[in-house]
Simulated scan of single mutants.
Amino acid sequence: MKYIIFDIDGTLTDTTEIDDLCYTQAITETFQFSDFNTNYGHYENTTDSGILNQLSLERRNRPCTVTEIENFIDCFCNLLERTYEKQPHYFREIPKAGKTINSLLRNEELRIGLATGGWKQSALFKLQCAGINIEACSAASFAQDAFARRDIIWQTISKMNKRHQLTPALSDIIYVGDGNWDYQATQQLGIKFIGIDNKKLAHIHDIIKISDYDELEQHLGLMTLTS
C-alpha cells in the first residue's frame, strides 16, 4: 500500500498568484503591518500559520492570539471570495489535476491525502472553485495543524495510518508539491517527492518532475514496480 499526498496551491490549483496577493492584503488589513517581506519562500516556515507567527514575533515580540488568527482567516477568505466573483480565472485547476485525483482514488493499492500550508477554509474554497472533489481522500491537514510543512505532512500521514490501520514504510509515501519548501519537508521526513516542473524547483536536479499530470501515473507505476 502506498500513500500519495498532495499539496494544493501550485500543485492541484493554479492559485499561487492570487493567494499571495490576498494573503498580503489580509496581513496589512488585519495587523496594519507594512514593509514586510512578501517573498514568502524566505520565511522559516512557508505556511500561512508559520509566516504569521514569524511576523508577529518579529514585529510585536509575541505570537498571534486565537482571535487574531480567526479574524485574519475571515479577512483572507473574504478577499478570495470577492476576487473569485470578479475574476474567476485566478482559481483554475492545474490541468488534469482533478481527473488524476479521481483516477488514483480508484486504485486499490493507493491511498490519497492532502497536506497544505494554507488554512483549511481557504484551501477548501480554492479546491471548490477549481472543481476538484476531494471528499474521497483519506485525510487532510492544514496550516491550523502546525507551523512547519513537515509537521503538516506528518499530521496527514498519521491520520491516514489511523483511518486505514496501516503503517507503511517511508519509502511507500510520496508527496507531490511545487516548491523548494515541499522538497525540503520530504527530505526531513524521509519520504519520496515528485515535483511540479517550474522555476521554484529548477535548481534541484535529482528529483522526478512532471510537466503534465499524465506523467504522474506513469511515474507512480514505475515506482510500484521497482519498490
Rank of each mutant, 00 (worst) to 15 (best):
residue 164 H to T: 07
residue 204 I to R: 15
residue 78 N to T: 15
residue 161 N to V: 02
residue 51 I to N: 01
residue 29 E to A: 09
residue 222 L to A: 13
residue 61 N to A: 15
residue 113 G to R: 01
residue 112 I to A: 04
residue 173 I to M: 00
residue 96 K to E: 12
residue 161 N to P: 05
residue 88 P to S: 10
residue 198 N to E: 08
residue 38 T to I: 13
residue 224 T to Q: 15
residue 18 I to V: 12
residue 49 S to I: 05
residue 88 P to M: 07
residue 6 F to H: 03
residue 210 I to A: 00
residue 65 T to C: 02
residue 73 I to V: 14
residue 161 N to A: 04
residue 70 E to V: 01
residue 205 H to R: 13
residue 174 I to M: 09
residue 132 I to C: 04
residue 24 T to D: 02
residue 105 L to P: 00
residue 26 A to I: 07
residue 196 I to P: 00
residue 207 I to R: 04
residue 140 A to R: 15
residue 117 G to E: 03
residue 195 G to M: 07
residue 205 H to K: 15
residue 193 F to A: 00
residue 162 K to R: 13
residue 107 N to V: 10
residue 219 H to L: 08
residue 225 L to W: 11
residue 80 L to P: 06
residue 32 Q to Y: 10
residue 34 S to N: 11
residue 158 S to Y: 07
residue 63 P to A: 11
residue 191 I to T: 02
residue 163 R to V: 12
residue 200 K to S: 08
residue 17 E to D: 13
residue 201 L to S: 06
residue 217 E to D: 11
residue 95 P to M: 04
residue 65 T to P: 01
residue 117 G to D: 06
residue 25 Q to S: 10
residue 192 K to V: 09
residue 160 M to G: 02
residue 28 T to F: 06
residue 125 F to K: 14
residue 163 R to N: 11
residue 48 D to P: 03
residue 154 W to F: 10
residue 137 C to R: 07
residue 95 P to V: 06
residue 52 L to Q: 05
residue 194 I to F: 05
residue 85 E to K: 13
residue 48 D to T: 00
residue 53 N to R: 14
residue 137 C to W: 06
residue 97 A to T: 05
residue 140 A to D: 15
residue 173 I to T: 02
residue 36 F to Q: 00
residue 186 T to D: 06
residue 136 A to P: 00
residue 184 Q to G: 00
residue 6 F to Q: 02
residue 193 F to L: 03
residue 87 Q to Y: 12
residue 225 L to H: 12
residue 82 R to M: 14
residue 65 T to S: 09
residue 119 W to N: 09
residue 49 S to P: 05
residue 113 G to M: 02
residue 186 T to A: 03
residue 204 I to V: 15
residue 183 Y to T: 09
residue 168 P to C: 05
residue 37 N to L: 10
residue 182 D to R: 03
residue 78 N to D: 15
residue 174 I to R: 03
residue 139 A to K: 08
residue 29 E to M: 09
residue 87 Q to T: 12
residue 12 L to W: 01
residue 143 A to G: 03
residue 40 Y to A: 01
residue 183 Y to S: 03
residue 40 Y to G: 00
residue 98 G to W: 04
residue 152 I to L: 01
residue 50 G to L: 03
residue 44 E to C: 05
residue 140 A to S: 15
residue 187 Q to N: 12
residue 28 T to R: 04
residue 117 G to H: 04
residue 208 I to F: 08
residue 223 M to N: 09
residue 190 G to S: 07
residue 203 H to P: 10
residue 198 N to D: 07
residue 210 I to C: 06
residue 156 T to G: 04
residue 129 C to N: 10
residue 84 Y to L: 10
residue 41 G to L: 12
residue 190 G to W: 01
residue 213 Y to F: 15
residue 2 K to Q: 07
residue 141 S to I: 06
residue 161 N to W: 01
residue 68 E to T: 03
residue 140 A to T: 10
residue 136 A to E: 12
residue 66 V to M: 12
residue 133 N to D: 13
residue 139 A to R: 02
residue 132 I to P: 11
residue 206 D to Y: 05
residue 59 R to S: 12
residue 21 L to T: 11
residue 196 I to N: 01
residue 37 N to Q: 09
residue 159 K to Q: 14
residue 125 F to E: 08
residue 67 T to S: 14
residue 172 D to F: 00
residue 55 L to W: 05
residue 218 Q to W: 08
residue 61 N to Y: 07
residue 71 N to M: 12
residue 106 R to N: 14
residue 168 P to Y: 02
residue 23 Y to H: 05
residue 205 H to S: 07
residue 208 I to K: 11
residue 25 Q to F: 09
residue 72 F to Y: 08
residue 109 E to I: 08
residue 38 T to F: 10
